[in-house]
Amino acid sequence: MTDWNERYKIGDTPWEKGAAAPPLIELLGKTQEEIWGSGRTLVPGCGSGHDVRALATAGITAVGVDLAREAIRRAEVFPRISDETYEQGDFLEKDFAEGKTFSAIWEHTCFCAIDPQRRENYAESCSRLLQSGGHLIGVFFLTAQDPGEEQQGPPFNSTISELDERFARWFDRIKEWVPESSYPGRKGKEWLAIYRKR
């Protein structure tokens, strides 16, 4: 099992790019307010909070959650943009959802980082936390498309068919596209999708 807190402490964080995900910035320039809803947006696996702050800059009330205490500590060091908040916790656990509801979830690097055996838990947690009609909005790594990609993760391989299957019990996919903007080395390996909770 990955010790995420220790990885932050020793600086073993290749996913940490120092800025918000380019597909998120692209998305914020395209989407209308109704995609995010009028409530809060959850960012699971928020790390140092770059995506949380990008959402806050766009006027979206965002809540970042991460397993690693060190990640949350780093996120809270940055100057506050608006009313964004951070919380240490495991959003895959049922207890995390108690008393919480969100109009949207922004997914970036969390789904691919967890043990694939917990992906059903991920889909259940999204359903549990989102209000009816809320959106799971995510950029997913389609690393299985690259025959040279390592099969050992994290990140772990995924495919569009698997994503659709995982979320089909609670969600309908309403939109998808390949982002024009990506970090170096990720071009063509990312897929942006919007799923609406039934």
Rank of each mutant, 00 (worst) to 15 (best):
123 A>D: 12
131 Q>V: 15
102 F>M: 05
115 D>R: 14
129 L>T: 08
113 A>N: 09
108 H>C: 15
126 C>W: 09
109 T>I: 11
132 S>C: 05
117 Q>S: 15
119 R>W: 11
127 S>I: 05
108 H>D: 12
97 A>N: 02
115 D>C: 12
104 A>W: 00
124 E>S: 08
114 I>L: 14
111 F>T: 00
97 A>T: 05
93 E>H: 05
113 A>D: 03
107 E>G: 08
99 G>V: 09
100 K>N: 11
116 P>A: 13
105 I>S: 10
124 E>Y: 11
135 H>C: 14
118 R>F: 08
99 G>H: 11
105 I>C: 10
135 H>G: 07
128 R>T: 11
93 E>I: 02
116 P>T: 12
127 S>A: 15
115 D>T: 12
92 L>A: 00
122 Y>L: 04
115 D>K: 14
107 E>S: 11
119 R>I: 08
100 K>L: 14
117 Q>D: 15
91 F>D: 01
110 C>I: 06
102 F>C: 04
125 S>W: 03
125 S>E: 02
100 K>P: 02
104 A>E: 01
92 L>C: 01
97 A>D: 02
111 F>M: 00
95 D>G: 13
113 A>G: 08
129 L>I: 06
134 G>V: 04
100 K>Y: 09
103 S>D: 02
111 F>Q: 02
119 R>S: 12
123 A>I: 12
128 R>Q: 04
127 S>Q: 06
